[in-house]
Deep mutational scan, measured.
Amino acid sequence: LKLEELTVSELRQQLRLRGLPVSGTKSMLLERMRG
């Protein structure tokens, strides 16, 4: 599964599971997911 294919709400869910901030735009969330 490519990160880009996730919805913003799915990205936020994944970030929350990792204890990361869930604020910002989709591109910011993607950068955060990539670490």
Rank of each mutant, 00 (worst) to 15 (best):
G24Q: 00
L30T: 09
V8C: 04
L6V: 06
P21K: 04
T25S: 14
L3G: 08
E4C: 04
Q13D: 13
E10R: 03
R16V: 10
L6Y: 06
M28F: 02
K2L: 05
R12M: 07
L30E: 09
E10D: 06
R16A: 14
R32Q: 09
L29R: 02
L3E: 09
T25W: 02
E5A: 10
Q13K: 14
L17P: 00
L20E: 10
R12Y: 04
L29M: 07
R32V: 06
L11S: 03
Q13A: 08
E31S: 08
E5T: 08
R32K: 03
L30W: 04
R12E: 09
L30M: 11
T25I: 00
L30F: 05
E4H: 13
R34E: 12
E4Q: 07
S23A: 12
P21G: 08
Q13I: 13
L3M: 12
L29N: 01
R16S: 12
T7P: 09
E5F: 05
E4R: 03
L30C: 10
S23R: 06
M33R: 02
E31Q: 10
P21H: 01
L1R: 09
P21Y: 00
E10G: 04
E4L: 00
T25P: 08
L20S: 01
P21L: 02
K2R: 13
G19P: 03
L29S: 03
S9G: 12
P21C: 07
G19S: 07
L6A: 07
P21F: 00
T25N: 13
R12D: 04
G19C: 03
M33L: 15
K26R: 14
L15N: 08
L3A: 08
G19F: 02
V22D: 13
Q14C: 07
S23M: 10
S23V: 11
P21W: 01
K2H: 14
L29C: 05
L6W: 11
R18V: 11
R12N: 00
T25M: 04
K26V: 14
T25Q: 05
M33W: 03
R16Y: 02
L3T: 12
T7M: 02
V22T: 15
S27N: 14
M33Q: 14
R34N: 15
P21A: 11
P21N: 08
R34T: 13
L1K: 13
R18G: 03
R34Q: 15
Q14D: 03
E10Q: 10
M28Y: 04
L15T: 05
S27I: 07
L20I: 02
P21I: 01
R32T: 14
L1V: 11
Q14I: 14
L29K: 07
R16M: 13
K2G: 08
R12Q: 14
T25R: 04
Q13C: 11
G19M: 05
M28I: 14
M33A: 11
L20D: 02
Q14T: 05
L20M: 14
E4S: 09
S23P: 01
E10L: 00
L1W: 13
K2C: 11
L3F: 15
Q14G: 06
R16L: 13
L11C: 00
Q13V: 12
R18S: 10
T7K: 10
L15V: 06
L29E: 10
M28H: 14
E4T: 11
L3S: 10
E31Y: 12
L15C: 15
K26A: 13
L6G: 03
R18L: 15
L15Y: 02
L1F: 10
E10A: 05
V8I: 03
L6T: 02
V8T: 14
L29Y: 04
E5S: 10
L29I: 01
S27M: 02
L20Y: 08
L1I: 15
Q14A: 15
S27C: 05
E4P: 06
L11T: 05
T7F: 01
Q13H: 14
L29P: 00
L17T: 13
L30A: 06
M28A: 14
L11I: 10
M28V: 14
S23I: 10
L3K: 14
E10H: 00
R34A: 12
L11Q: 03
K26P: 01
G24M: 01
M28S: 06
E4G: 03
V8L: 12
L30Q: 14
T25C: 05
L17A: 14
E31R: 05
G35S: 09
G35T: 01
S9R: 12
R12W: 09
E5H: 09
T25F: 02
V8K: 13
V22W: 03
V22E: 14
V8E: 14
L15W: 00
G19W: 00
L1M: 13
S27G: 12
E10M: 02
L11R: 03
R12K: 13
R12H: 03
L30G: 04
Q13R: 09
S9K: 15
L6D: 06
L1E: 15
R32A: 04
G35A: 12
E4N: 13
V8H: 04
L15D: 02
S27W: 09
V22P: 01
V22L: 10
K26C: 01
L17V: 13
E5V: 07
T7R: 03
L17M: 12
L3V: 08
K2V: 14
L30Y: 00
K2A: 13
G24N: 02
R32W: 03
L6I: 09
R18W: 11
L30D: 06
V8S: 08
L17D: 14
R12A: 06
S27Q: 15
E4M: 05
R18A: 14
L17W: 08
M33V: 09
L6F: 12
T7N: 09
K2N: 11
Q14F: 06
Q14K: 11
G19A: 01
K26E: 06
E31M: 07
S9Q: 15
L29T: 08
R18Q: 14
L29V: 01
L30P: 04
V8W: 13
M28R: 10
G19L: 03
T25V: 05
S23C: 08
G35D: 15
S9L: 08
V8R: 07
L6E: 06
L17F: 08
V22R: 06
S9D: 15
L3P: 11
G35L: 13
M33F: 04
E10S: 05
R12L: 04
S9A: 14
G24E: 07
G19I: 05
V8D: 06
R34C: 13
R12V: 08
S9W: 11
L15G: 06
L15M: 10
L11Y: 04
R34F: 04
M33E: 11
E10C: 02
